[in-house]
Design a protein around this nucleic acid. Sequence first.
DNA 1: CGCACTTTTGAACAGTATCAACAAGTGTGG
DNA 2: CCACACTTGTTGATACTGTTCAAAAGTGCG
Lengths: 271, 271
Amino acid sequence: MEAGWQRQGKLWSNLKELCDVLRIPSAAVHTDEELLFQHVQFKTGQRIHTIGQPFDTLYIVHSGFLKTVLIDEFGNEQVLSFPMKGDLFGVDGIHTKRYASEAVALSNCDLILLPFKKLTALGRAHPEFEHAMYSVMSRELVREQAMVSMLGALSAEARVARFLVNLSERYADMGYSSKLFNLRMTRHEIGSYLGLTLETVSRTLSAFNEIGLITVDQRSIGIKDLDALKTLRRLPPSSTRAKQSGAKKAKAAASKEPDQPDGEWDSLATA
Amino acid sequence: MEAGWQRQGKLWSNLKELCDVLRIPSAAVHTDEELLFQHVQFKTGQRIHTIGQPFDTLYIVHSGFLKTVLIDEFGNEQVLSFPMKGDLFGVDGIHTKRYASEAVALSNCDLILLPFKKLTALGRAHPEFEHAMYSVMSRELVREQAMVSMLGALSAEARVARFLVNLSERYADMGYSSKLFNLRMTRHEIGSYLGLTLETVSRTLSAFNEIGLITVDQRSIGIKDLDALKTLRRLPPSSTRAKQSGAKKAKAAASKEPDQPDGEWDSLATA
DNA sequence: CGCACTTTTGAACAGTATCAACAAGTGTGG
DNA sequence: CCACACTTGTTGATACTGTTCAAAAGTGCG
């Protein structure tokens, strides 16, 4: 038992662990740093913060999957992002001192709390940490810009294709299989995220399956032709598709290859 | 002649002026602060930075109008924002140390240079300035989120309407008329920004003009019914529109009311 | 003055949304 | 344990919003 913060099933992290999760260099950080960061757990469906709630802390995903949403004047959800391991969220609360969006757990989650006061204090003590925080916020902004660009210019098929490619790369980053994974969100949520209806998402996934780019079985996705997905701009007409149905009846259902955690507390089992 | 930085037609600003332009509290700032920030001028059409160019400084618009764009693999521009007085841009360069977007002057511009190194140093010396910078970056993120939401959920008419409302409010903030102003960008650029074609933008403006919400004469826009623009979700069918053309033949062409600067160097004439 | 760019408007078409029916899976309570 | 309600996902038919292609007029600049 190396430290007190290991008690209670790892409810705390030190600065080095925080940096590692965020994928920022922790070289210059003193490993003897006393500062500890509290973890907090949420179960599937629970709300982390709501719109208008007073802001004081940022969240870093240690494990699990979430969505952040905006709610329009008539209660319709607009999905903004699907935070997962290593992502920071809550940043939109800094400006008005109130969260501008709502965050909901799509699976059981383990989050690291980063009080904004602590962040600024830390930035003053560790210049390279301050730089890293600006960098992470910049990364978020670039991500949003890419979303705007996608929504503004790409067809439905291209959006879904890029969504799958991004997810695949994200899973690879996290050390899971990039070829076989489960979606943590519904078609409706994907559609909202991509500016499409759930029917269009469903049809597009079916079409990709038909031409052998992927396999689909409910939430289970198998990537079969990553390059095609990456470069796809628009689908060939369905008349062309009808013929070439060959070797692609391999429903992914049977394969039980270990792809990603599905446990009670995602990747928290390493106690 | 109060200070050396007034020489050469106001090429420098102190910290207080910087904060004022950014609309952040400068109360705690020492007015005797020695630090000066260089200005730089760009003429219409000039490029401030390009994609991939090494990043080291942020820009704050002191006067003038710009656009920031992404360029896709085949050279198509995707407009991301239209920075104007008080806006910060270049933030997307922090993460990868290279600008992720390109900024172009739509009018003659006067920009304040904020070297990123200077920003971080300043943040350490003035905690409230550091907080303000986080706040401004958060504001940018919220703005991008609003764009994503708009592109994902609103009809073409609603997008154009909201664009006009935002512009109107922005002009009001800057002290210009919110009821009569000139667009600094082409229909094509507006369309790119809103995820529409230039034809749709043109048609929508014409339709708004027909039903009396605005007056349009090329780049000149007159706001006639702000509330209707704010709440507009979708236009009544054109068959309905045909009848009710009444008191709205007032082409804005004749009115030469002073609305905003159009000089050689926008609002730089106050020397 | 001429040429390139911008804007407007029309007509036909295409891509998605909408509406609807149904199937499969999940949880609840009798 | 099964009946029932509810959520999620698939697929089809149809309508409609916005794009594409095209033509012409207006604007501005060298």
